[in-house]
C-alpha cells in the first residue's frame, strides 16, 4: 500500500491540482480579505497625491503573467482614474502595449468615457532596450519617445507639455513580471534620482524585492494576494464592491486557498510516506 502511494503516478497529482483550482472557480468561492501594510502603502501612494498628479504607469508584463498581474494593473488604472490623475502608460516588454490596450479598454473606455486621450491619459508604448530605456528616459524622455504609441508627435500631446523626463512625474507605478521590471526601476530611477516608485509584481519576484522596502520602494503588491488586497482597498474606498470586473483578484483568492491547502497536504503526505518507509526499512532484517 505504502509502496503504491509512494510511487503514485504523478498524473493523479496533476488531476488533484486541476480540481483544486477548477472547483472553486466553478463554484465561485469567495473569502474575505484584509489588506496588509504594504498594500496600504501602495494605496496611500496613489491616494495621497492631489488630483491631476502625473502618474507614470509602466506595465512590464505579458500574457504569461497576466493571471497574477492583470488584476493589479486594472486596480491601478481604476484608482488613478477615480482619483483624477493624469495617466502615462509605457512598457518595456514587447507585449506590454497589448496589456496597456487591454486595461484602457477594460477600465477607461468602459467606465470613464469622458477621459480624453492625450489630455487625461496617453499611451507612449513600448521601447526595447530594457534598463537602457529607463536610463535614457530618466533624464530625457523625448530622446526615445518622439511620438506616442499611435504615432502622434509628442509635442502635440497636451498632457506631455512640461514633461521632460521621468523625474517630472509625481509617481511611477510599475507592474512587473520579471526582467526588466521593478528591480530596474528601483535601480535606475528610484535610487539615483529619488523618483517615487511603487510596484506590483509576481510571486517569484516579490521576496527578492523586499530588501528595497521601504527606503527605495515604499510599497509593493506581491502576487495575486497583493492584488486582492489593493483591489479591496480601492473598491471599498470608491464603493465599487459589486462591479465584477474590478474583483478579479479577490475572486482568484478562492482557488488560491484550496490549492494552497492541497500543496500543504501534498508536502505532509510526501513526508509521512517517506518517514514511514524509512521506518519500515530500519526494522526490516
Amino acid at each position: 500500500m505504502l509502496e503504491y502511494v509512494a510511487r503514485l503516478d504523478r498524473r493523479w497529482i496533476f488531476l488533484m491540482m486541476l480540481l483544486a483550482v477548477a472547483i472553486p472557480i466553478l463554484f465561485q468561492l469567495r473569502f474575505p480579505e484584509t489588506p496588509t501594510p504594504l498594500a496600504k502603502a501602495v494605496f496611500d501612494a496613489v491616494e495621497n497625491l492631489p488630483p491631476g498628479s502625473k502618474v507614470l504607469l509602466a506595465f512590464d508584463y505579458d500574457p504569461a503573467s497576466e493571471g497574477e498581474l492583470g488584476p493589479m494593473a486594472t486596480a491601478f488604472v481604476l484608482h488613478c482614474a477615480k482619483k483624477g490623475h493624469k495617466m502615462y502608460f509605457i512598457a518595456l516588454w514587447p507585449v506590454g502595449p497589448q496589456m496597456i490596450d487591454d486595461q484602457i479598454r477594460k477600465v477607461i473606455k468602459t467606465d470613464f468615457p469622458n477621459l480624453v486621450y492625450g489630455e487625461d491619459y496617453v499611451n507612449l508604448g513600448f521601447k526595447p532596450g530594457n534598463e537602457g530605456v529607463i536610463k535614457v528616459i530618466v533624464t530625457d524622455l523625448r530622446q526615445l519617445y518622439t511620438t506616442d504609441d499611435k504615432g502622434v508627435n509628442i509635442d502635440k500631446i497636451p498632457m506631455m507639455q512640461g514633461i521632460r523626463s521621468v523625474q517630472d512625474f509625481d509617481l511611477v507605478i510599475n507592474v512587473s513580471a520579471g526582467y526588466p521590471g521593478t528591480k530596474e526601476w528601483v535601480q535606475y530611477a528610484a535610487t539615483p534620482y529619488g523618483i517615487p516608485v511603487v510596484g506590483g509584481c509576481t510571486g517569484v519576484q516579490a521576496p527578492l524585492l523586499y530588501p528595497y522596502i521601504p527606503d527605495q520602494l515604499p510599497g509593493l503588491l506581491g502576487a495575486i494576494k497583493g492584488a486582492a488586497e489593493y483591489e479591496k482597498l480601492v473598491v471599498d474606498r470608491y464603493d465599487l464592491a459589486d462591479v465584477g470586473r474590478y474583483l478579479e483578484g479577490l475572486r482568484r483568492m478562492g482557488p488560491q486557498l484550496v490549492a494552497h491547502m492541497l500543496m500543504i497536504f501534498l508536502i505532509i503526505a510526501g513526508n509521512v510516506i517517506y518517514f514511514a518507509q524509512r521506518r519500515q526499512e530500519r526494522y526490516r532484517p
Binding site: 503573467s65 497574477e68 517569484v204 506581491g222 502576487a223 495575486i224 482557488p255 494552497h260
Partner: peptide, 14 residues
C-alpha cells in the same frame, strides 16, 4: 510565493 504565483496563472486559464 512561487507556488502562489503559479496557481494564479493556472486559475486565469481555467
Amino acid at each position: 510565493y512561487t507556488v502562489m504565483g503559479r496557481i494564479a496563472l493556472l486559475a486565469i486559464r481555467l
